[in-house]
């Protein structure tokens, strides 16, 4: 318990300091907001093109597909708030050798590397994503209790997304330059913008078993909307926990190969 409190205190301190550093740049907020609105509008327009003709991929209704879109935007916000600012920096830490300082702190290096920074510029995405989900849920008449229960699958998809990023970030220890890899991952994750049923079978298999995009947006949406039962929740939990455990083990394994940039 004491350890949890200590870590929470640290997170508060980490985030308040990085917020202080980010707040130096006010114009960024405007740019980030415009960017978020633009991306979401583009996504919804794409979805609209699908549905305009009456085509319903996999039997998903317009509002149901919007839930997926909302989840995608929410995760995009999470990525910009925590994943990019933290995991994107692992490369710099390895290149300049400042990872040394992180490793010598009496605290989990994975915790430090994952939580040290906080960027407010993803918050507009988070707000928009929540807005779209709330709107669709209201249109679909989803019960508040079902929405509350939906927090669990959403939390699981956050864990899945984080683990995927961290596993990729870890490969920096060997390859040093991995900017491109995270770009490829982001590109693949874009697929999560639409219900997986909208893709041909081959893609669906790829996005379920190779890069588990399905578990990021489609599966949680299916659980919230009651399209899938509790058993799917267990599968999602197993995927999330499995990936998280793997990311922890993989990081420990990678550190054995860390040679530290020479001075």
């Amino acid at each position: 318990m004491q350890a949890i409190l200590r870590h929470l205190r640290l997170v508060r301190l980490f985030w308040s300091t990085s917020l202080a550093a980010e707040m130096e740049y006010r114009l960024n907020f405007v740019v980030a907001s415009i960017n978020s609105v633009g991306t979401l509008a583009g996504g919804i327009f794409g979805l609209f093109l699908f549905y305009r003709t009456g085509y319903r991929p996999g039997g998903w209704r317009w509002e149901e597909a919007l839930v997926v879109m909302g989840l995608f935007t929410l995760l995009e916000g999470f990525t910009r708030t925590l994943l990019t600012p933290n995991l994107g920096r692992i490369v710099a830490h390895v290149q300049t050798g400042t990872l040394d300082f992180v490793l010598l702190k009496p605290i989990s290096s994975q915790f430090w590397l994952s939580m040290r920074n906080f960027s407010p510029w993803g918050l507009p995405d988070v707000a928009l994503g929540l807005g779209v989900i709330a709107y669709s849920a209201w249109r679909l008449g989803v019960a508040p209790a079902a929405i509350a229960a939906g927090l669990v699958p959403v939390a699981l998809s956050v864990v899945t997304l984080y683990s995927l990023w961290f596993i990729l970030g870890t490969t920096t220890i060997w390859f040093v330059k991995t900017y491109n890899v995270t770009e490829v991952l982001r590109g693949l994750l874009e697929a999560g913008m639409y219900p997986l049923a909208a893709y041909p079978a081959g893609y669906r298999i790829f996005f379920t078993f190779v890069v588990p995009v399905a578990f990021l947006t489609t599966v949680p949406a299916e659980i919230v909307l009651g399209r899938e039962g509790q058993s799917m929740l267990f599968v999602a939990a197993a995927v999330a926990m499995g990936l998280l455990a793997f990311s922890i083990a993989f990081w420990r394994f990678a550190l054995r190969y860390y040679t530290s940039a020479s001075s």
Binding site: A21, T98, D100, F101, S263
Partner: peptide, 25 residues
């Protein structure tokens, strides 16, 4: 470990902020 060529302080913030973080860690 102190390395003359690497720094752990937060570049954009006052020294005291970095010290607060270390104290908490």
């Amino acid at each position: 470990l102190v390395m003359g060529q690497k720094q752990q302080l937060i570049w954009d913030l006052p020294v005291l902020d970095s010290l607060r973080i270390n104290a908490a860690v």
